[in-house]
Amino acid sequence: ITFYEDRAFQGRSYETTTDCPNLQPYFSRCNSIRVESGCWMLYERPNYQGQQYLLRRGEYPDYQQWMGLSDSIRSC
């Protein structure tokens, strides 16, 4: 899974293949995501807390595409 700070896969990015309890050191906001394979559970707060979103393989050019309430993703 790759997270992008800006919409349409622009700006600083961070890629991971494992669970991350705290994504804050890698980016300040998340406006687009690419899921290369599988399913990922994302959380608005660190340590798997807050609103959660299940994303399947695909491209999400805007946080509203995954029904996000904000551009805050802090763990996965």
Rank of each mutant, 00 (worst) to 15 (best):
S13H: 09
N31I: 04
P25W: 15
L55K: 01
F27L: 06
G11V: 02
C39H: 10
P61W: 11
E5T: 04
G38Q: 01
Y53D: 02
S28V: 09
Y48E: 02
Y14E: 02
T16C: 11
P21K: 12
D62S: 07
R56K: 10
S28W: 04
P61N: 09
M67N: 07
Y43V: 00
N22A: 09
D62A: 10
C20M: 14
Y53E: 05
Y60K: 01
Q64D: 12
E59K: 11
A8S: 10
R74A: 13
E15P: 07
Q24L: 15
F3V: 00
Q49G: 08
I73V: 14
S32K: 00
S13I: 12
A8W: 07
N22E: 06
I1N: 01
Q10G: 11
E5W: 03
T16R: 07
Y26K: 08
E44C: 14
P61V: 07
Q10I: 03
Y48K: 01
S70N: 10
W66G: 13
D71N: 10
N31G: 07
T16I: 06
C20L: 08
P25N: 13
E44H: 05
Y63T: 06
A8R: 11
L23K: 00
R12A: 08
Y4I: 02
S37M: 09
L42S: 03
Q64E: 12
S13Y: 03
E44S: 07
M41L: 08
Q64M: 06
G68L: 09
T18L: 09
L54Y: 02
D19W: 13
I1V: 09
T16E: 03
P21R: 05
P21Q: 12
S75M: 01
Q24F: 05
W40A: 13
E59S: 13
G58S: 09
L54W: 07
P61F: 09
G50Q: 01
G58R: 04
C76D: 01
S28I: 10
F9M: 06
R74T: 15
W66Y: 14
R45E: 07
S32R: 00
D62I: 03
S75I: 04
P21M: 14
E36A: 13
R45D: 06
R29A: 14
E59V: 08
Q51S: 10
E44K: 09
Q64N: 13
S28Y: 10
E44D: 12
N47A: 13
C39P: 14
R74E: 10
C76G: 15
Q52I: 06
C30Q: 01
D6M: 15
V35I: 00
Q64S: 04
P61A: 11
R45C: 05
C76A: 13
Q64T: 11
S28E: 14
N47T: 06
T16H: 11
R7A: 09
Y48N: 05
R29S: 13
P25I: 04
F27H: 06
P25T: 15
T18K: 07
Y4N: 01
Q51I: 14
G50M: 00
T2Q: 06
Y4M: 02
T18C: 04
C30E: 00
Q51W: 05
Y43W: 05
E44G: 12
Q10E: 09
C76M: 04
S32D: 01
S75L: 13
A8V: 07
L55M: 03
Y4W: 06
R29W: 08
W40D: 01
T17M: 05
D19P: 02
S72D: 03
D19Y: 04
T18N: 13
S72Y: 11
Q10L: 05
Q24T: 05
Q10P: 00
L69F: 15
L54A: 10
Q24G: 12
R12K: 12
T16G: 06
G38V: 07
Q65K: 04
Y43D: 01
W66T: 12
T18A: 14
F3L: 09
G58T: 06
T17H: 02
Q64V: 10
A8I: 11
C76Y: 01
M67F: 06
L69Q: 14
V35M: 01
W66E: 14
L42N: 00
S75H: 00
S32W: 00
I33C: 14
D71R: 10
Q64W: 10
E36M: 12
Q64H: 15
G11L: 02
R7I: 05
R74H: 11
Y4A: 00
S37H: 05
M67K: 08
V35E: 00
R56H: 15
G50S: 03
C39F: 09
L55G: 02
D6P: 01
P61R: 09
R12L: 09
C39D: 05
C30F: 04
L55N: 01
M67Y: 07
R12D: 06
Y43P: 00
R57A: 13
S72G: 12
G68D: 08
W40R: 00
A8M: 12
E15Q: 12
V35Q: 01
R57G: 13
L69T: 13
M67I: 06
S75K: 02
W40M: 02
R56V: 13
S72V: 10
R29T: 15
F3C: 02
S13D: 05
R12M: 08
I73G: 03
T2C: 08
D71V: 11
Q49R: 07
G68F: 02
S70R: 07
S32H: 01
S32V: 00
Y14L: 06
E15K: 15
C20N: 15
Y63E: 05
C20G: 08
N22D: 11
E15N: 14
Y43Q: 01
Y60M: 02
G38H: 03
N31A: 02
D71M: 05
Y53V: 09
P25A: 11
L42Q: 00
Q51L: 12
Y63K: 14
F27R: 03
Y48C: 14
C30T: 04
Y43G: 01
Y48T: 02
C30W: 02
Q51P: 03
G11Y: 02
N47P: 00
L23M: 12
N47I: 03
Y53H: 15
D6N: 09
G11W: 00
E59I: 01
Y4R: 00
Q52R: 07
R74L: 12
Y4T: 00
R74C: 13
T2K: 09
E15M: 10
D71C: 10
N31L: 03
M67E: 05
Y48M: 15
S28M: 12
D19A: 07
Y4G: 00
M67S: 08
R74W: 15
G38W: 02
Q49S: 13
E15R: 09
G50C: 03
D71A: 11
L55A: 02
D6H: 15
T16Y: 15
R12E: 14
L54C: 14
L23R: 00
R7F: 07
L54S: 11
T16M: 14
E36D: 12
Q51K: 04
C30N: 06
P21G: 13
W66Q: 13
Q52D: 15
L54H: 07
R34Y: 06
D71H: 06
Y14T: 04
N22Q: 08
P21H: 04
E59D: 12
V35G: 00
R74V: 15
S37C: 06
D71S: 08
Q65M: 12
R29P: 02
Q24P: 03
C30V: 06
E15G: 07
M41H: 04
Y63P: 14
G11M: 02
N31P: 05
R56Q: 11
Y26H: 07
R12N: 08
D62L: 07
A8Q: 11
S75C: 13
G50R: 02
C39V: 11
P61S: 11
R57F: 13
L42G: 07
R56F: 15
L23D: 01
